[in-house]
Design a protein around this nucleic acid. Structure first.
Length: 822
RNA sequence: GCCGGAGUGGUGGAAUUGGUAGACGCGCCGGACUCAAAAUCCGGUAUGGGUGAUACCAUGUGUGGGUUCGAGUCCCACCUCCGGCACCA
């Protein structure tokens, strides 16, 4: 007998909707749980198995919390702006507005078939003017607080997407979206000053419960390093000071040359006439190299002498100034002092161009005059370093930093690897940046009362090398808000990561018209208690959102500094072949097939049972059949025992079998509770399976007239509640079958009694020298002495130890006795 | 190269603070029901030895060491795989 899953799913979907089972009351915040799952991106692709693996388990966890009497806010919405939708529109010619709203409608139905408990009254759509009005408003707040600025900078340009990208969106020199090689361009673009929050973004990591891996990824991405800025003068240009950044001021005496980035502003000024041609050629060549070529660590280093000399401030030594593209203009000062003896890159470069290599730190156990075979980057004793000779390099680092500061030729500084967040995009399908350019007044923000700056619909969005909005006269031409003269609008749109940096706040006030959110509500509901989503956003969305909320906190707009208190990542479901699912590999598993065959509950449960939620793994076709069998067993055991539910006579005296069953029930409740809470869904389901096995054993072994009907009813009702978060449709149906009032999700979570789990007799393990020799059933609470007695007299133990000397006996209470003999 | 994480049966994966390794499934083998099949149910299933069958013995959580009465778990070295970063001075 199978269960009619289609009928059940439709019945309860309808019931939940009509009776508003999942209505959230934000006023009831005293036991609140904000459970957030990363919202989907409605491009041309529908939801796939990966989404199921995200939303199904997240919903299970949310339902579990709801049954534990939390007011659970588990909203859903759509990250609707963005490139995939626009690229699809370019390909088909259909307006992204149309495809996006169609896809949203479709995906909303798919989400409903997962059976999730979203309250759709709180839905958000980032491409809706009522949403992006506030994205623009937030841009203006950042601008007002000097956290948004426009600057010319070398940027990452994706030739295929025809737009710039943030550093976070460049993976190994390629576009995160389309894998095209990213080019470098100098453009004037909008940035958010995320680097101003570097320290706090680092410090905040200690205050949140996130996977260590994710925290480390953010930490490495921010890339803090401590060092010093040191000023060198240039021979013949005494009023110009060349600043370098180094983490190793202790090696200053070992600097035998300097390197500037080819783009460094000093380069044209200081290059000698004789070297000018070579320098210009090198700059040209470096400019042509793609980002990936230039940053490749395996490529041989190249460079050109400028003809200029710098003066080392500590010993007045003249050292040649080179340019080389292994020095980046975008980090530090764009210039370095090169110490080949103690830096691998400088060593390689110096060997190639025959530049002297001077040892200033002696590696312990080596000779001062022995030539170096490779750079020595460790610590040691100072040599060739004037008054610092003989000091340890560690000491020297401190001393020389102090001295440099005293002499006014350097200062201790901190550098970060990450850069400000570039938010301009030369694309159509995004929120317009609310700025106006006036010939007289310069850049002028759009007044708040004039928001939103509506994204015009009648725009040719095909890429032609200029931002699509630039081609719309109607959009571009406006008047300056300050002086009223004719002016032009900013034609770039915002990175979609701006949209998703605050959606979790908007959810809480999704309908608010005159403000981005209701201060009272977010005060009561932020932060998000549990965030669930992929690790692929570790250094993008998850970093941006933290920055946003910190900035808002400083403006008095957010009650919290950190948006996401707890975070878990789901793993990835791979194809049956163990590879990542992709159309080109032909290993994509389509959830629809399993929905038709087994229904939504089976698919959900299989995803949670067959995989470690946080690890994922390859799809196995047999697994879903196993879960189908399991749910069928539950279905059967309930429907074949309906008579136990009425009339209810309380039979409190338990037979041995009753006690066993009762124990199994409490044991299952306990462990399902613990495991569901900590996202160990696979073991939670295992514990339910054990209970079901126990239940079948009881029904089979105990004669019907001896079965404790009251106990059976309790066990069955608890069983139904235990599986409810996992298989919501079936549980709801069975709950009704068992005479319960729908909805089972308002029926509370079963409680367990630790005493009922305990048994008087346990199996003691007896070891001799750490090897198991006997197992014996005995009272649980034996004193140490009793346990020792037991061990020494059980089975073949006396025989085994009779010729030996007992050294000591270790008793692990309620578990094991180890007799150590010699 | 640097920084993380992980290596457990044929297989997915379990194992509070060091204390019965392999829970729960899948697969496989055997059996029951059936004319037969499907479905369902029951039993077995780490490896090697041993026995008529039990019992029992040895080995066993990537490799090699160590700490401990006792190690999948802690420490050291190494190997493999996965993920992130990568000329960041």
């Amino acid at each position: 007998m199978s269960f009619p899953f289609n009928e059940i799913e439709n019945k309860w979907k309808k019931y939940w909707e009509e009776s508003k089972t999942y209505k959230v009351n934000l006023n009831n915040y005293h036991k609140k749980c904000y459970c957030l799952v990363m919202f989907p991106y409605p491009s041309a692709d529908k939801l796939h198995l990966g989404h199921w693996f995200n939303y199904g388990p997240a919903d299970t966890w949310a339902r579990f919390k709801k049954m534990n009497d939390y007011e659970v806010f588990h909203p859903m919405g759509f990250d609707a702006f963005g490139l995939p939708a626009e690229n699809y529109a370019v390909k088909t010619g259909i307006h992204p507005q149309k495809t996006t709203s169609e896809n949203i409608a479709f995906i909303r139905e798919q989400l409903k078939s997962i059976g999730a408990m979203y309250d759709w009254d709180f839905e958000v759509n980032t491409s809706d003017p009522s949403y992006y009005k506030w994205t623009q408003w937030l841009f203006l707040q950042l601008y007002k607080n000097n956290l948004a600025y426009r600057a010319e900078a070398p940027v990452n340009w994706c030739p295929s997407c025809q737009t710039v990208l943030a550093n976070e969106q460049v993976i190994e020199g390629k576009c995160e979206r389309c894998s095209s090689l990213v080019e470098r361009k100098n453009l004037t673009q909008w940035f958010f000053r995320i680097t101003a929050y570097a320290e706090r973004l680092l410090a905040g990591l200690d205050k949140i419960e996130w996977p260590i891996k994710t925290k480390l990824m953010q930490k490495n991405w921010i890339g803090k390093s401590k060092g010093a800025e040191i000023e060198f003068s240039i021979a013949g240009f005494m009023d110009e000071k060349l600043k370098v950044f180094t983490t190793r001021p202790d090696t200053l005496f070992g600097a035998t040359y300097m390197v500037l980035a080819p783009e460094h502003p000093f380069v044209p000024k200081i290059s000698s006439k004789g070297q000018a041609k070579a320098v210009n050629e090198y700059i040209k060549q470096a400019g042509r190299a793609s980002e990936i070529e230039r940053t490749s660590t395996v490529r041989e280093k190249t460079g050109v002498f400028t003809g200029a000399y710098a003066v080392n401030p500590v010993n007045n030594e003249k050292i040649p100034v080179w340019i080389a593209d292994y020095v980046l203009m975008t980090y530090g000062t764009g210039a370095i002092m090169a110490v080949p003896a103690h830096d691998e890159r400088d060593f390689e470069f110096a060997e190639k161009y025959n530049i002297p290599i001077r040892k200033v730190i002696l590696e312990p156990g080596t000779e001062k005059d022995a030539p170096l075979k490779e750079a020595y980057t460790g610590e040691g004793t100072m040599v060739n370093s004037g008054k610092y000779d003989g000091m340890s390099s560690k000491e020297c680092l401190q001393q020389i930093s102090e001295d440099l500061e005293k002499d006014g030729i350097g200062k201790r500084t901190i550098q970060y690897k990450f850069r400000d967040w570039l938010v301009s995009r030369q694309r159509y399908w995004g929120a317009p940046i609310p700025m106006i350019f006036c010939d007289d007044c310069g850049e002028v923000p759009v007044p708040e009362e004039a928001l939103p700056v509506i994204l015009p619909e009648d725009v040719d969005f095909k890429p032609k090398g200029v931002p699509p909005l630039a081609t719309s006269e109607k959009f571009v031409n406006t008047n300056c808000p300050k002086c009223g003269k004719a002016a032009r609008r900013e034609v770039d749109t915002m990175d979609t990561f701006v949209d998703s940096s605050w959606y979790f706040m908007r959810y809480l006030s999704s309908k608010a018209k005159d403000k981005p959110w209701d201060t009272e509500v977010i005060k009561n509901w932020m932060p998000v208690d549990q965030y669930i989503g992929g690790i692929d956003h570790a250094t993008m969305h998850l970093l941006y959102a933290r920055f946003f909320v910190m900035a808002l906190y400083d403006m008095g707009l957010s009650p919290v500094e950190e948006p996401f208190k707890n975070l878990v990542h789901q793993g990835i479901i791979k194809g049956p072949d163990g590879n990542r699912m992709s159309k080109s590999r032909g290993n994509v598993i389509n959830p629809e097939r399993y929905l038709e065959k087994y229904g939504s509950d089976v698919l959900r449960c299989y995803l949670m049972f067959g995989f470690d939620f946080q690890a994922g793994g390859p799809w196995d076709d047999g697994g879903s059949a196993a879960i189908n069998r399991f749910l069928k067993r539950i279905w059967r055991v309930v429907s074949e025992n309906i008579d136990v539910f009425s009339p209810e006579i309380k039979e409190t005296s338990f037979s041995k079998d009753d006690k066993e069953l009762n124990r199994a029930m409490h044991y299952a409740v306990k462990h399902v509770t613990i495991d569901t809470e900590r996202f160990h869904f696979n073991t939670a389901i295992s514990r339910v399976m054990e209970l079901v096995n126990e239940l079948f054993r009881y029904i089979q072994d105990v004669k019907p007239e001896n079965q404790n009907k009251y106990l059976l009813a309790t066990v069955l009702r608890n069983l139904i509640r235990l599986i409810a978060p996992y298989a919501p449709h079936i549980a709801e149906e069975l709950w009704e079958t068992a005479g319960g009032q729908p909805s089972v999700f308002n029926a509370g979570w079963p409680e367990y009694d630790e005493k009922a789990i305990e048994t008087n007799e346990i199996t003691w393990v007896i070891q001799v020298n750490g090897k198991i020799r006997e197992r014996v059933s005995a009272a649980k609470n034996l004193s140490k002495k009793q346990a020792e007695e037991l061990a020494l007299n059980t089975g073949r133990i006396p025989d085994m130890i009779k010729d030996k000397k007992v050294v000591k006996i270790i008793v692990v209470p309620q578990k094991l006795i180890n007799i150590v003999v010699r």
